[in-house]
């Protein structure tokens, strides 16, 4: 564990909690892409199957359980409890255009042609594009609630910090995972546009609104 990964995991946890809390408190999922949240639930489910096969540490196991349970709770709130507030018209990204190519790529490019490893690879590739429906929805509505932008900032920051974690681990441990690094780079690049808007608008107290 290193400082970058520690802050990154904390930022990821913060993002998940911020979103769950926002939906629960406001009793509304307006402006939230349910499709992205379903993709994140799939990401965690396919990545953390090793909960059943290997134990790494109490931290590792407990965080995985928290991530999985919060992501399913979020999907439940969006599609069941507060379904009336779900904005399906603007959450119209065709996720099959993400899942199918990512699934194919995971079968073609992986570290080991074993089921758990292919599922892990699928999860890594899927996570890198899972935020697209949410970003697409914001571009369609032309705006985002400030709390939603904080959620997105924490979510984007987490994988950006993982890039520094991989630099650290390569330098100090010789650890190197090309699949995770490339996917993490793609994932972080997808947030750049949002990061720019977040820093120039939200941090200056303005509302995030895209030129309609």
């Amino acid at each position: 564990m290193n400082i970058f990964r520690g802050i990154a995991d904390f930022s990821h946890l913060a993002a998940i909690i911020i979103l769950l809390h926002k939906i629960w408190k406001s009793r509304s999922c307006a402006g939230i892409s349910g499709k992205s949240q379903i993709l994140f639930a799939i990401v965690f489910t396919t990545r953390y199957l090793d909960l059943l096969t290997s134990f790494i540490s109490l931290y590792n196991t407990s965080m995985k359980v928290i991530y999985i349970s919060c992501s399913y709770a979020t999907v439940y709130l969006i599609y069941m409890k507060f379904r009336a507030t779900y904005d399906g018209n603007h959450d119209s990204f065709r996720v099959e255009f993400l899942v199918v190519p990512v699934g194919g790529l995971a079968v073609l490019i992986n570290h080991d042609f074993a089921l758990l490893e292919i599922l892990w690879t699928f999860s890594i590739y899927l996570e890198s594009v899972a935020i697209l429906p949410q970003l697409f929805m914001i571009s369609k509505t032309g705006e985002a609630e400030t709390i939603t932008t904080h959620y997105l900032f924490c979510l984007g920051l987490y994988r950006a910090l993982y890039l520094f974690n991989w630099i650290w681990r390569f330098y100090f441990e010789g650890f190197f995972d090309m699949i995770a690094i490339v996917a993490g780079l793609v994932q972080t690049v997808l947030y750049c546009d949002f990061f720019y808007l977040y820093v120039t608008k939200v941090l200056k107290g303005k509302k995030l609104s895209l030129p309609a």
Binding site: R5, D9, H12, R47, D50, S54, I56, N60, M63, K64, Y67, H111, D112, W120, Y162, N165, G174, F175, F176, D177, M178, I179, A180
Partner: peptide
């Protein structure tokens, strides 16, 4: 590439 057989990251 020295990716870990068991993935120790979240």
């Amino acid at each position: 590439a020295d990716e870990s057989a068991t993935h120790d990251e979240l």
